[in-house]
């Protein structure tokens, strides 16, 4: 939070009166934002002497170390913060971005996925996550097959990940549904609004364009039925002069969207949408097991 000069004075006063006050934290943040990093660093280190388990203080100390170019110490502090509070959103975010910066794609994906779940609007995290995903896949494909026999594992290897086959099945099913009579698109979106599979649009694929707008419909529907005490949302139906679109939630917080031409019976679109949802749920169940 950006602080006003009035707040800075107040925190300063509180800390002067009571050195054990936790006002050191907002004050240090204010100094960091004012580029007074040395003062901020001294404040946090002194605060941690009295509050060694203060999670936010470790997080802030990590930021200050990173500002100073000491990425190792920074990661140590965020690691401490996560050890104290595994759900800490700031530490998770910074760990993810730090892993991304050093090219540790697997670690970056792990942390950034959680960070994105904490704040779906964080564009920096989203961009890094997309990039880390792509790079981790490229790295996996580029890994040369080993000609030498693999060393005997000390522990049993986990079952081979079979996500590609599961994805292919989903893509084929949604592709097939898109070809059904009068249907102009069937697409699966995840909770963050990413297209998982499918296409949408009569002339060209607009799935990517509409996913960002559509993804918000899920949270809006959830908010409405929650506030009005109508149980969980089961679906949204939208009609336009040219199309009928059915949105249905999936178990991961995402949704499927199926669009049909306005001249096909609505009941048909609803049935195709039900099949698309079943495909999506099979995919999610298989992905849960394909690890």
């Amino acid at each position: 939070m950006s602080a006003s000069p009035m707040q800075v004075k107040q925190w300063t006063d509180e800390l002067a009166a009571d050195p054990a006050s936790t006002a050191f934290l907002p004050l240090a943040r204010a100094y960091r934002e004012s580029a007074k990093r040395e003062a901020a660093l001294r404040l946090v280190l002194r605060g941690l002497e009295r509050h060694p388990h203060h999670v936010d203080a470790h997080h802030l100390l990590g930021l200050l170390y990173r500002d100073a170019g000491d990425n190792v110490k920074a990661a140590d502090e965020w690691g401490i913060a996560l050890a104290l509070a595994p759900e800490h959103p700031g530490a998770r975010r910074e760990m993810g971005l730090a892993a991304f910066a050093r090219g540790d794609w697997a670690s970056a994906v792990k942390h950034l996925e959680q960070a994105q779940a904490n704040d779906v609007m964080d564009q920096e995290v989203r961009a890094a996550l997309e990039s880390a995903w792509q790079r981790s896949r490229v790295a996996a494909r580029a890994a040369p097959p080993s000609s030498a026999p693999a060393p005997a594992p000390e522990a049993p290897l986990p079952e081979q990940w079979d996500g590609g086959r599961v994805f292919d099945a989903l893509a084929a099913e949604l592709g097939s549904l898109s070809q059904e009579r009068g249907i102009v698109g069937a697409v699966m979106l995840d909770a963050q609004g990413f297209v998982v599979a499918g296409r949408m649009g009569a002339d060209r694929d607009r799935a990517g364009e509409i996913s960002a707008v559509l993804s918000g419909a899920s949270s809006e529907a959830e908010r409405a039925v929650r506030h009005l005490k109508m149980g969980a949302w089961k679906g949204i139906l939208v009609e336009t002069p040219r199309a009928v679109v059915r949105l249905a939630p999936t178990g991961d917080g995402g949704m499927v969207a199926v669009a049909g031409r306005r001249d096909v019976p609505m009941g048909w679109v609803l049935r195709v949408a039900a099949r698309a949802r079943e495909s999506a749920e099979r995919f999610l169940a298989a992905m849960g097991g394909a690890r």
Binding site: K9, T12, D13, L15, A16, A17, L43, R46
Partner: peptide, 12 residues
């Protein structure tokens, strides 16, 4: 009046 306390007071 309380706000007179400066940063030096914090660090002592």
């Amino acid at each position: 009046k309380d706000l007179e306390a400066g940063l030096e007071n914090v660090f002592g």
